[in-house]
Nucleic acid binder design. Structure first.
Lengths: 138, 138
DNA sequence: GTAGCTGCAAACTCTTTGCAACTCT
DNA sequence: AGAGTTGCAAAGAGTTTGCAGCTAC
C-alpha cells in the first residue's frame, strides 16, 4: 500500500479501484498534470473511469492536503502531490514548470505578514520568465 | 481627460461613452472590483451598458497593461488600475485585500529567477492570512 | 464613410451536482 | 447491510463570441 493510499485510508476514505488508480497516476507524475491529464492517464489504466470521479477525488485530496492545487493563469487547475514545500517558475516560452525552494523567501513572507498584523495561513508565489539566452524575438 | 483615457487614446482605442464610464469606475475604485462589481458600478451611471462590453474592455486594458487582473483563488477575476507595483495579502476571514510593497522581496525574486537561468517577466505573490488576535475559533 | 465598438443571446470551458446503481468495509 | 462512491448527463459559473446595428473619428 502506497504512502498516499495509507494516508487516504487514515482519513477514512474508501480505497476504491478508481482512487487507487488516481493516486498512482499522481504519485508517478513527474510534472504538474491538469485534471484532463490525470483523467487521460487514469483512463489508460481503466478506461471506464469518469472525469467526474477525477474531479471529486482531486478535490478530496486537496482538502486532505495530500495534493496541491495550482492555477497558473491558464484558466484551469493543475495538481501535484504535496511531498514538499516549494514554489514554481513557469517558462513562458515552453510552459515548463520549474520548482524551487528558498529559505530567505520563506522567512521574508512570514515577516511581511507579521508586520501587517497577520498570521500567514497560506500563500502563493509564482514566477514567470524566459530562459536567459533564448534569442527568440517576438 | 483623465490619464487613463489619455493612455487609451494613445493606444488607438476609440473613447466611447461606455469606455469612459468603465475607466471612471476603475479610476475611482478604492478596492479590487470583480467584473460584476465593475458592471454594477458602471450600470449605476449608464444602465444600458452590457457585461460583454465590461469583459471586452477589461481584457483590452489588461493587454495594454493599464489594469492588473488578479485571480485570488475565488473562481473569478478582480481588477485594479496598474498605478504602482505591489502585492496583496488577502484576509481569509473578511475577504479584505491589503496591499503591500517590499523591496527586499523584489530583489529576492529577481535573484531567484536569475539563479535558475531565467529573465523574470512576470510574477505573482499573494499572502493569505488571519488577523493576529482574531480569536474566532473553527 | 468606415473601422471599430456595442448589446444581445448563444456558445464555450471548466467544474459541480442529482440520481440511480454499485462497492468497499 | 449500508454508508460512501461511481458514471452519466444535466446544470452551473464565469467568460467569450457571432452578428446586426451603431458611433467615434
Amino acid at each position: 500500500m502506497s504512502e498516499l493510499e495509507q494516508r487516504c485510508a487514515e482519513a477514512g476514505l474508501k480505497m476504491t479501484g478508481q482512487r487507487k488508480i488516481i493516486l498512482q497516476v499522481l504519485g508517478d507524475a513527474q510534472d504538474h498534470p491538469s485534471v484532463e491529464d490525470v483523467y487521460d492517464r487514469a483512463k489508460a489504466i481503466d478506461s471506464s473511469i469518469s472525469i467526474a470521479t477525477v474531479y471529486r477525488t482531486l478535490n478530496l485530496l486537496d482538502e486532505l492536503d495530500l495534493v496541491m492545487k495550482h492555477e497558473f493563469q491558464e484558466g484551469y487547475s493543475r495538481y501535484e502531490v504535496n511531498w514538499d514545500h516549494h514554489h514554481h517558475l513557469v517558462d513562458l516560452e515552453t510552459g515548463e514548470v520549474i520548482e524551487f525552494q528558498n529559505d530567505e523567501l520563506e522567512a521574508l513572507k512570514e515577516k511581511i505578514a507579521l508586520d501587517l498584523g497577520y498570521d500567514l495561513i497560506d500563500h502563493r508565489l509564482e514566477l514567470y520568465g524566459k530562459k536567459i539566452g533564448s534569442k527568440k524575438k517576438k
